[in-house]
């Protein structure tokens, strides 16, 4: 059997770009976060569009909600879980549909950086907002 070129050149040989253990955690996380998001995301949507009308939502509406720390915690949990769930799903889609090589590497970096940027921006907004007096 021929030795893999990567091995013969003394570079670490990687049969797969994905690590099985990490894929298991990703699989597990998608399910657990998905179950939590059924309550958090659908709850958020119903609060904004069914129990209230979108016509009621404005700066004061949001400011009033964020006057209560409980709603900031709710919104932050929703932000973190939905971003990690969504971008993890996008990561799986990229790995399955983008041909291996430079383009996939680029797409993976794009997914990772986007996750960090949106997590940071969303967290900053929820924490930094000051309730007007």
């Amino acid at each position: 059997m021929a030795v893999s070129p990567a091995l013969s050149q003394g570079r670490p040989y990687r049969a797969q770009a994905v690590r099985p253990a990490m894929e298991f955690y990703s699989w597990y996380f998608l399910r657990v976060s998905g179950l939590l998001l059924i309550f958090l995301a659908l709850g958020h949507f119903l609060i904004m569009h069914a129990f209230n009308s979108i016509l009621d939502v404005d700066y004061h509406f949001v400011a009033q909600r964020w006057a209560l720390p409980a709603w900031r915690i709710y919104d932050w949990l929703l932000l973190v879980l939905s971003l990690l769930h969504g971008f993890n799903g996008l990561r799986v889609v990229v790995n399955e549909h983008v041909p291996a090589g430079m383009v996939r590497r680029g797409a993976q970096w794009f997914v990772a950086l986007s996750t960090i940027v949106f997590l940071a921006l969303g967290t900053y907004v929820i924490v930094a907002f000051r309730t007007p007096v």
Binding site: Y59, V62, G86, L90, V93, V125, F129
Partner: peptide, 19 residues
């Protein structure tokens, strides 16, 4: 899933207008 993720990103941006 992709559609909701796309909206989620827009929603983070529009909510940041609160600041």
């Amino acid at each position: 899933g992709l559609g909701v993720l796309g909206f989620l990103c827009l929603h983070v941006l529009d909510t940041s207008m609160m600041l």
